[in-house]
């Protein structure tokens, strides 16, 4: 199973969940999964959009009780 870390970006308006993920990517190892927690539904589309653009992997997105859990994998 891949190593996984969680970034709790609930309630983050600034810098916001995507910016937290970009910062978090610098700390992750290649192959590591990162789960972002966000209360901004926009994260469900903007995080995968960026992930595809920089060629990492979007593993999945799930909404539970108003919190979006976006799972990504650092691939390079």
């Amino acid at each position: 199973m891949s190593k996984r870390r969680t970034i709790d970006a609930r309630g983050s308006f600034c810098p916001g969940p995507l910016m937290e993920l970009i910062a978090g990517m610098k700390m992750a190892e290649v192959g590591e999964e990162i789960e972002i927690l966000s209360t901004d539904k926009g994260s469900a589309s903007e995080i995968p959009e960026w992930i595809h653009k920089v060629k990492h992997e979007h593993v999945g997105t799930e909404e539970k009780d108003g919190v979006w859990h976006v799972l990504v994998k650092k691939t390079h």
Binding site: F13, C14, P15, G16, L18, M19, I22, G42, E46, E49, W50
Partner: peptide
């Protein structure tokens, strides 16, 4: 800017 709009705060 790093994200998909010109500032973090929508």
């Amino acid at each position: 800017y790093p994200i998909g709009r010109v500032h973090s705060l929508e």
